[in-house]
């Protein structure tokens, strides 16, 4: 475009700027529209999938796991959405299911709290919840439990999944596990629940005072372990119920 001089040239320049702007907004409008229709298409497809496989999603744990994996890999949270419980809730009835599971998790955590101090291994929790639901096994998975615990978070009850030595545990008391306690829980699991001062001193190069203080805190302050004063080796062993193998 030849760069003119004078007033007429100025007008021409303004006009072409306007038409460029118009063109660009039309273009992006088309793009957005296209995107919207794609999203609609995708949503319908997903909804169709969810409703055709509704029964499998609710009843088959491995299918449900795969579905949840798929949702999370494409960035869709089955429980999120504009409505309470998410738009999946209506489609699948999945949120009722999650809430119901949440209630059962709370039930188990509260009823075992006095013997494990509010810390339970997730596999044990799954086992007890399954028993509560009247299913031998396979009814629910660890993944389901973790999801349900996330749905409990807004209640502020302090339920949390913590990982100790690669083993997932659920904590139902608002109590920070300090580093030493984490180490003790790790030792306890290796020993079938039993911990003595000497093990901690040998394995972690702790002083006796540190080992004793950490164990006594867990025993007296937190109620996270039981005392055995008849231990053959030391006469004072600590037992962590959440690390013991119970065959009830």
């Amino acid at each position: 475009m030849r760069r003119g001089v004078g007033l007429a040239a100025f007008d021409l320049q303004e006009q072409s700027k306007r038409s460029f702007a118009q063109l660009s907004s039309e273009l992006s409008k088309a793009q957005v529209q296209n995107l919207h229709s794609q999203l609609d298409h995708f949503r319908t497809a997903l909804a169709h999938f969810a409703s055709t496989h509704r029964e499998s999603i609710r009843n088959d744990p491995s299918f449900r796991y795969a579905f949840q994996q798929m949702c999370s890999s494409i960035g869709v949270d089955p429980l999120a959405g504009p409505k309470k419980g998410g738009w999946w809730a209506e489609l699948l009835g999945l949120s009722d299911w999650q809430y119901e599971l949440g209630v059962q998790i709370v039930d188990v955590c509260v009823s075992t709290r006095e013997r494990n101090g509010g810390l339970i291994q997730i596999s044990e929790l799954v086992r007890l919840v399954s028993r509560l639901r009247g299913m031998a096994d396979g009814g629910i998975t660890e993944e389901d439990v973790i999801r349900s615990i996330k749905t409990l978070q807004p209640l502020g009850a302090g339920y949390q999944v913590v990982e100790i030595d690669g083993v997932k545990m659920v904590r139902s008391v608002v109590k920070a596990l300090d580093e030493d306690q984490t180490v003790i829980l790790g030792t306890a699991r290796e020993q079938g629940g039993r911990v003595i001062e000497d093990d901690l001193i040998l394995q972690n190069a702790w002083t006796r005072e540190r080992a004793r203080a950490a164990l006594e805190n867990m025993l007296l302050r937190d109620g996270m372990c039981w005392l055995d004063a008849q231990d053959e080796q030391t006469g004072r062993a600590y037992w962590v119920p959440s690390a013991m193998q119970w065959e009830i």
Binding site: E114, R115, L219, L220, G223, L227, A229, W239, E247
Partner: peptide, 22 residues
Amino acid sequence: PSIHSAPPFFTEQPNPTTQSTA
């Protein structure tokens, strides 16, 4: 019951909450 095979079951527990459970 299985708790009868847990060694600490035979010791009085110093933590009052634990003790009342036991």
